[in-house]
Computed example of a mutant assay.
Amino acid sequence: MSKIGIFFGTETGTTRLIAKKLYKILGSDIADKPVNVNRISPADLLQYDALILGTPSYGEGDIPGKGASGCFEPNWEEFLAMMGRPDMKGKRIAMFGLGAQERYSERFASSLMALYQVFAGLGAEMIGEWSTEGYTFQYSASAIGDQFVGLVIDQRTQGMHTEERLQAWVDQIKPALLEKVEATA
């Protein structure tokens, strides 16, 4: 049986921590261990039909990387440059992003939308929207109406909600991801 692939970019390690928590909730029987995108080739990600992708937020809603957002290590920006523009029709992707709603209220978790648009633009089926209820921010590019395009975690000011949000989101996305895994097994 194929599995769900979990990939993330990180700068301080928090996105890695969240990816590991998601893996623990899903379990090793249906998901592979999370991997940092700065340690893989595009073929490693593209082998999966069901994916969970995670990103920190840096800059003004930029895709995190050494260029526009000034990350110290390679991140999504460098990975996407290597990946090019593959056809991702047939892939089902859920995304999560990190942000700090008090510190960056005017651009809360906006990098999630930048990454979302890349994969949606390549033809992937995007799932995993998450309510904006319970968050306090001025603006987020990642919000469409009252929904984020993926799960948003504010570990800095709402860490007390992280476990509950992760579990609820996994309960929401797991059936659709498993359907994709089982269809390609």
Rank of each mutant, 00 (worst) to 15 (best):
L178D: 03
A109V: 10
R92K: 15
L115V: 15
F72V: 09
I18R: 00
F96Q: 04
L51I: 11
L177P: 01
Q158P: 00
E133M: 07
R165H: 14
M1G: 14
M88W: 09
M82N: 12
K91I: 06
Y139V: 01
A168S: 13
G150F: 07
K180R: 15
L80A: 05
G67M: 11
A94R: 05
E106I: 10
I127L: 10
A43S: 15
L122D: 03
Q172V: 00
D146T: 10
P86I: 09
D49T: 13
A141E: 12
K24P: 00
D32R: 09
V152I: 13
T12A: 13
G90C: 11
F148M: 04
Y48W: 09
E60G: 13
P175E: 02
G128R: 06
K24D: 15
A183K: 12
G150M: 06
H161R: 13
I18F: 06
I173V: 15
E106A: 14
Y139E: 08
K89L: 01
G67L: 12
G27E: 11
D49H: 11
Q158S: 10
P56R: 04
T184N: 13
Q172Y: 06
M1Q: 10
T55C: 13
G13D: 08
V170W: 05
T162C: 11
G99C: 11
F108N: 02
Q47L: 01
I52D: 07
M1S: 15
E164K: 14
W76A: 01
K66E: 12
L122Y: 14
I25Y: 02
T55H: 07
